[in-house]
Simulated scan of single mutants.
Amino acid sequence: MRVKIVIRLISFCSLTLLFFICFSTLGQVRMPACSSSSQFYKADSINVITFGASTVEGVPAPLNFQQPLKSFIENCYSGKAVNVYNYGVAGETTKQGLIRFDAAIANKTGFILLLMGVNDAVQIADGKGGSVVATTQNLQLMIEKAQAAKLNVIIGTLQFFLEPGGRGPQSNRIRKINALINQINIQYRALANSKGLKVADINSVMRSNSLYSDDVHPNRRGYYVMAMIWFDALNQEIVENHLKTAVVQNYPNPANTYTKIGYTLSSASSVKVSLYNILGNNLGVVFEDYRNAGYHVEEISTIKYPPGVYILYYEFLNNFFTKKMIITH
């Protein structure tokens, strides 16, 4: 009976929704945790271009990381329009990708996720041309084109091939390819660091055979894991560069001995929070320091203040905010 139910469930799911709907229904997939700062994303939409070769395209079809990634974003950034574009073409090197790159980013806004270079490593290992330097230069050109188009770039590290046992010709070839992938990843990380870009470190996580459908492509769970890695990097980029300036209600409220204040900064700034009573008298500064861009929570003591209604007055980035706070003892 259990087998029949599973078969009917899989039949019910469309091929394009097989990964997310079916796996979620069977309890094998869960949504990743949302960033506390997701509520402060300042744009009305999140547009994501994914560019690369077969892993970006989705092999074996219809599996891909774009669909779960879109679901993760929609779940955490509620009320925002989410578009995820797939510009993956199986078998391409970075040189071939450059030919179609301009068309892929034309009239696009938002973020671009770059995952390309495995086929370069294969080509180099097989003596068919190319080099690690040329591969890195090609990716650099993509980055510069994307930045010129005002896109926010995130680089993905390349996953290794699964290495077969033994020391035969095929095993040696795969090891050679992986050594080249490692060299390319080192250069990609250095490139990202030099340009201040986020890195989705896919290679460091995709090390389990259970995440692969063949020697290099992810299976359903592998694509889910890959989507989580991209999602983390996307969140980091948003927290650092795409939050509006705002404050949240302190909690607990009413406060007893302490309360926590939360706020977001769109860029680094001094932060000053003063406390006023209901009559408008300034009772002094309860927090003052410097903070970087992002979402912050500070704990302040309320022990010395008598029960009553108070006003928290925030000053940062030439903005002023107020929140009502109640103290009870």
Rank of each mutant, 00 (worst) to 15 (best):
Y85F: 13
P68T: 04
V48P: 15
G168F: 08
V29H: 12
G117K: 13
L151Y: 08
S269A: 11
L18F: 10
L18V: 02
I303V: 15
N250K: 01
A146T: 08
S131Q: 12
V205G: 00
A146E: 04
L180G: 02
N138G: 04
T328A: 10
I311K: 10
S171Q: 07
V82P: 09
T50E: 10
E299N: 15
L162S: 00
G165K: 01
A125P: 12
Q140M: 10
L151M: 11
K198G: 09
E57F: 07
Y41W: 04
M1G: 06
I124Q: 13
F72Y: 15
M142N: 15
V273L: 02
S37E: 07
T55M: 10
S266E: 11
H217P: 06
I99Q: 08
K4W: 10
T109D: 05
S274Q: 12
G280I: 04
Q183R: 06
P252G: 09
Y305E: 02
C34D: 11
S131K: 07
T322P: 01
S210E: 04
A179Q: 08
S131L: 08
V205L: 00
R221D: 05
G97C: 04
A148H: 07
V285W: 12
S269Y: 07
V3Y: 15
Y290C: 03
I49Y: 10
S45I: 06
K80F: 05
Q28D: 03
I5R: 13
C76A: 13
V118H: 03
V225I: 15
K95N: 10
S11D: 15
A227K: 08
N256K: 10
V309Q: 05
I124T: 11
Y313A: 15
L9C: 06
G222E: 04
V133P: 00
I261N: 01
V3P: 15
H217S: 08
F321E: 04
L18I: 12
P68R: 10
S194Y: 03
K323D: 13
F160Q: 03
N172C: 05
G165A: 13
N185K: 05
A61W: 13
N277M: 09
P252C: 12
R167W: 13
N281E: 11
L151K: 14
G168L: 03
Q67S: 11
L139F: 05
E315D: 08
V273R: 01
F20A: 07
V82R: 12
V153Q: 06
V199Y: 00
R100W: 09
D232G: 15
A255Q: 01
R175K: 15
I174Q: 03
I73M: 02
G27P: 09
S54H: 04
E299A: 10
N193Q: 11
A255F: 03
S37V: 00
K80M: 05
F320V: 11
R220C: 03
Q123K: 14
R100Q: 09
V48A: 13
V248A: 12
F65N: 07
G165T: 02
F231N: 13
Y77Q: 14
A125I: 11
F20Q: 09
S54T: 04
I143W: 00
Q187Y: 02
F316P: 11
A149R: 04
